[in-house]
Every structure is written in C-alpha cells, then in structure tokens.
C-alpha cells in the first residue's frame, strides 16, 4: 500500500511517498485506521491543524474502507490562492 505525501506531510516523513508492506497483517483497513497507524510512526502528523485523507482523488471520512489498489494521499492544511 502506497501513500502519497504533500506539503508539510512530506517534510514530516522525509519522503514524497510511504509504503506499507502488504505482508504486514496490521495493514490499515480504513482511513481512520491509516491515520492511527501513521500517527504511531510520525506523531507530528497528528499535531497538524488538519489532516485529510484522499482516496482516489476524493476526500474520505474515517470510516471509508481502503485497499492496496486505491490511490491514497495525505492532505495537510491547504493554502492555495
């Protein structure tokens, strides 16, 4: 499972994407689970004023199910315009 990173989340993780090995049986099954999982390794992610998750180019709520074939991205506070 690959997670795309943007903005400050890229700085926190130190890379533009992050891989969660599929062999890992703790692989998160929902957006909420993913945030919790990443928060354990990168607690600074949970300190952001907002952290949204996009699944296949749409903002997704915590209960949304995720799978390895989905395009998943972390969206920190936006600042366009």
């Amino acid at each position: 499972m690959t997670i795309l990173l943007f903005g400050v989340t890229k700085d926190i993780v130190g890379s533009s994407s992050l891989s969660i090995p599929v062999s890992n049986n703790t692989i998160p099954k929902t957006v909420g689970g993913l945030k919790q999982y990443l928060g354990q390794s990168y607690p600074d992610l949970l300190e952001l004023s907002s952290l949204a998750v996009a699944v296949n180019n749409n903002y997704a709520g915590d209960e949304t199910k995720i799978d390895t074939f989905d395009e998943i991205a972390l969206i920190p506070p936006v600042s366009g315009g």
Binding site: F6, G7, V8, D11, S49, A54, A73, I75, P76, P77, V78, S79, G80, G81
Partner: peptide
C-alpha cells in the same frame, strides 16, 4: 478551502514555513 494546493512561504534568510489558509 477544497483544492489540495500547498504554499511554502519562503523567507529572505532561506528558511520557510508552510502556509495555512
């Protein structure tokens, strides 16, 4: 509020911070 664009504010001393709308 919706579009995933991220602005990095660059300072004159080469440091930066991420902007928040």
């Amino acid at each position: 509020s919706q579009v995933p664009i991220f602005g990095k504010e660059l300072f004159q001393d080469d440091s930066y911070q991420w902007k928040v709308n």
